[in-house]
Design a protein around this nucleic acid. Structure first.
Lengths: 149, 149
DNA sequence: AGCACTTGCATAGCAAGCTATACAACAATA
DNA sequence: TATTGTTGTATAGCTTGCTATGCAAGTGCT
């Protein structure tokens, strides 16, 4: 069997991810947000004051990547980092007012982007697609979703 | 309806793409290859001597990204770029012997990675997943797959 | 021929991902 | 209580993606 890029799931996944990312980038630009901050914001909107380590585990992203992303977010006035009182190593991450105010418009933009990029699929297909990706992630992620701590 | 990352197709697509990329990165590292060069190599293994513009159209990647990727590939001895005789602006891209020799092992690595990351899905589900991604790409890519020239 | 327009590529600069490594703060133990 | 190990973050340096911009080579029109 020949190997062609248009049948390679790895290649297709990369392409699909770029499509979503390009769309979302454009939609959240007016808000002063970039895509990389989005996952962290989603977690923090749910639970403010998480540690960096908790964010890393939740998002299945390398610790170094998270540290860089948080540095940009702090620079851009989305978060502040404060040392934990009882453990001098841990940095707790707190949202600024600006970041809290962006929750509504940002999630609306993401929902719009999802709908737009998936408009070519039926409702059923969209659901299938979602479920399949969830399965792949569950089977392949580095870290457990809910670590012991 | 609440917006959660684990139901956002854009987020899931990014995560799935990272999973494939991490796996492939590890598999092709012994070959001295990186993931970014892979799409270009696949096209050139099929049709050597393409112009940069043709590659950009085929791969739905920004021209600047392609120029950078080709620069790295040239640095790493995978390609050479030669000006077209009849049009001084166009750069034709030619594979080196080293790159030609990598076709077998590299595509084998990609197939292995696809199989490994999708081992959690049935054959039917893998096919569904592939078809759904192809649909999304067809509906959302920037450029036509086969430009007029 | 000379001018503006277009086209193909390169460069600058940034975001977001990665690995490898350093380092300070805590924990455990001899 | 020192030493040794572990753990949480940070930093360095790379790839891969993007936008914006510059520039040289071709095209067309007068």
């Amino acid at each position: 069997m020949e190997f062609t890029k248009d049948q390679s799931q790895g290649y297709l996944a990369n392409h699909v991810a770029r499509i979503f990312a390009r769309g979302l980038t454009a939609r959240i630009r007016p808000l002063g947000l970039t895509t990389g901050t989005f996952p962290a914001l989603l977690e923090l909107w749910e639970t403010d004051g998480m540690t960096q380590k908790q964010l890393v585990a939740k998002l299945d992203i390398e610790q170094a990547t998270m540290a860089n992303t948080l540095a940009r977010m702090e620079r851009d006035g989305l978060i502040i980092r404060k040392k934990d009182a009882s453990d001098g190593r841990v940095q707790r991450v707190w949202l600024t007012d600006r970041a809290r105010a962006l929750r509504g418009p940002a999630t609306a933009a993401a929902m719009d982007e999802n709908a737009a990029s998936l408009a070519c699929l039926t409702e059923d297909e969209q659901q299938q697609f979602t479920t399949l990706m969830q399965k792949i992630i569950a089977a392949n992620r580095y870290r457990a979703d809910s670590p012991s701590e």
